[in-house]
Computed example of a mutant assay.
Amino acid sequence: MTDAPVRIAEADGQHAVLAFSGDLDAPALVVLEELLLDPRLREPRAWTLEMSGLDHIDLACAYALLRTVTRAPEPVALTIRGARPAVHRTLRQAGLDTVAAFTA
């Protein structure tokens, strides 16, 4: 599915990049949760969430990201790149700023 709001752009044993686009809201929550269970994301201990193409994320999806990172058996170094102000605000409201580094 090429129009999915989130996809794994790259993943190897060390690092994973998830690319976001469009709107990530309630209808997309199942897609996001299924993607976060992808076996390619189990090994990498560093994730980059590329959010420059994301227009909107709702709190349920932001919480799903937070749950995944905080419940991982091994710590995940999380970087959120390119989040627009409204997306950044929602991620902060969910508490992702406590577990992630934000970059432009």
Score class of each variant (00 low, 15 high):
Trp47Ser: 09
Val99Cys: 13
Ala86Pro: 05
Glu10Ile: 13
Pro27Thr: 09
Thr98Ser: 13
Val30Gln: 11
Arg7Glu: 11
Met1Pro: 13
Asp55Gly: 14
Ala28Asp: 06
Trp47Ile: 05
Pro85Val: 01
Ala77Val: 12
Ala77Glu: 10
Phe20Gly: 01
Phe20Val: 00
Ser21Tyr: 07
Pro44Asn: 02
Arg84Met: 05
Ser52Gly: 10
Asp55His: 08
Glu10Ser: 15
Leu37Gly: 13
Asp97Val: 03
Val69Trp: 04
Gly22Arg: 04
Asp23Val: 05
Arg71Cys: 14
Asp38Ser: 03
Gly13Lys: 15
Leu37Asn: 15
Thr48Ala: 10
Ala72Glu: 07
Arg89Tyr: 12
Pro73Gln: 07
Leu54Asp: 00
Arg67Val: 10
Leu24Gln: 12
Glu50Asp: 11
Asp12Trp: 08
Val31Gln: 03
Ala4Lys: 12
Ala46Pro: 08
Ala64Lys: 03
Ala94Gly: 02
Ala64Pro: 04
Glu50Trp: 04
Leu36Thr: 06
Asp38Trp: 03
Pro73Thr: 06
Arg42Glu: 09
Ile80His: 00
Arg71Trp: 13
Glu33Ser: 13
Ala28Asn: 08
Cys61Arg: 01
Thr70Ser: 15
Pro5Asp: 06
Ala83Cys: 03
Cys61Asn: 07
Pro73Asp: 07
Asp38Ala: 03
Ala101Pro: 08
Thr103Arg: 06
Pro39Ala: 11
Leu66Pro: 05
Gly95Ala: 09
Thr98Trp: 10
Leu29Tyr: 06
Glu34Tyr: 14
Val76Gly: 11
Asp58Asn: 13
Leu32Ala: 01
Ala77Cys: 10
His88Ala: 12
Arg7Asp: 12
Leu32Ser: 01
Ser21Thr: 14
Leu36Asp: 05
His56Pro: 07
Ala104Asn: 14
Leu66Cys: 12
Leu18Asn: 06
Glu34Gln: 15
Thr70Phe: 09
Asp55Cys: 13
Arg84Gly: 05
Phe20Ser: 01
Asp55Tyr: 01
Gly22Cys: 04
Gly53Phe: 10
Ile80Pro: 00
Ile80Asn: 00
Val17Met: 11
Pro75Phe: 08
Ala64Leu: 10
